[in-house]
């Protein structure tokens, strides 16, 4: 589904990704771990098409398409979803409007008609119930005055509504208490399936207690320096990153 080859990304005048290569097959969940400043969030932003994150070398294929040639909105409509580490607040645009507009944009790209308003509400209510979110969130401004945990839950709600093919979740676990973590993990797990891939960008192992990845990759200085199975996350938790970084430098 996702094939990244020798990706170099510059933010401003800073080179953050330096020849990153990674493949995420369809149906798999991959975790990207690494110390602060290793380039984890930059990878997520670059794949989602954030302006200012410039790919200077390499290529990214998404379902065989050149992802980097697509503007951000086109990537989203093609099924790429970014769950933000710090979701912005947009007072004045309510959640229900955003969800409906986003879903219809995705449907339009897939050649489907706009969803009926009643059907949409039923659909969203079902997802909200699953995420244990109060319906009053629908009429509030996007993320407006939400707590950190509510914002993350809202990101997962959007993901469940949009049912992306490729979900990139950037530090979705940060700022969550243990109960919220379980709900968020439940949301992520519910989306696992043979037609979908999920990339979890995370600093700590604790989310991976609830969402078991198929593969774990360690990112350092803008490159994948080590990969392994789910047991790698536990080892990183136990031993830290230094041993991997030392081994890769040798």
């Amino acid at each position: 589904m996702l094939k990244i080859e020798n990706l170099h990304v510059t933010v401003g005048d800073r080179k953050v990704l330096n020849g990153l290569t990674l493949e995420v097959p369809t149906g798999e969940v991959h975790a990207i771990m690494g110390p602060n400043g290793s380039g984890k969030s930059t990878l997520a932003y670059a794949l989602a098409g954030r302006p200012g994150y410039e790919a200077t070398q390499g290529r990214v294929l998404y379902d065989g398409q050149d992802l980097l040639a697509m503007p951000a909105e086109e990537r989203a409509r093609a099924g790429v979803f970014l769950g933000f580490q710090y979701p912005v607040e947009i007072p004045g645009v309510n959640n229900v409007y955003l969800l409906k507009a986003a879903l219809n944009a995705r449907r339009k790209a897939a050649g489907l008609a706009e969803i009926d308003a009643f059907e949409f509400l039923e659909y969203v209510r079902g997802k909200m119930k699953f995420m244990q979110m109060d319906e009053s969130f629908l009429s509030r401004g996007v993320n407006e005055s939400f707590s950190g945990g509510e914002k993350k839950r809202n990101e997962i709600l959007q993901m469940l509504v949009l049912e992306p093919r490729l979900a990139l979740l950037d530090e979705t676990d940060s700022g969550l208490d243990i109960d919220a973590m379980k709900i968020v993990a439940q949301g992520i797990n519910s989306l696992r399936g043979p037609d979908r891939s999920i990339v979890l960008v995370t600093h700590y192992q604790r989310l991976l207690d609830h969402v078991q990845p198929d593969r774990v990759h360690v990112l350092s200085r803008g490159r994948i320096v080590h990969s392994g199975g789910p047991e790698l996350a536990l080892e990183l938790e136990r031993r830290g990153y230094d041993w991997v970084l030392e081994a890769s430098a040798a």
């Binding site: 909105e73 979701p87 947009i90 986003a102 944009a105």
Partner: peptide
Amino acid sequence: EHMLFYLLSRGIERRVGQSLLKWAFLTG
């Protein structure tokens, strides 16, 4: 720009996103 990218990342067209943000700015 952060708000605009958030909307784009949800598949909203750029010109619609810009209109939404103008509206949000004014009615906030």
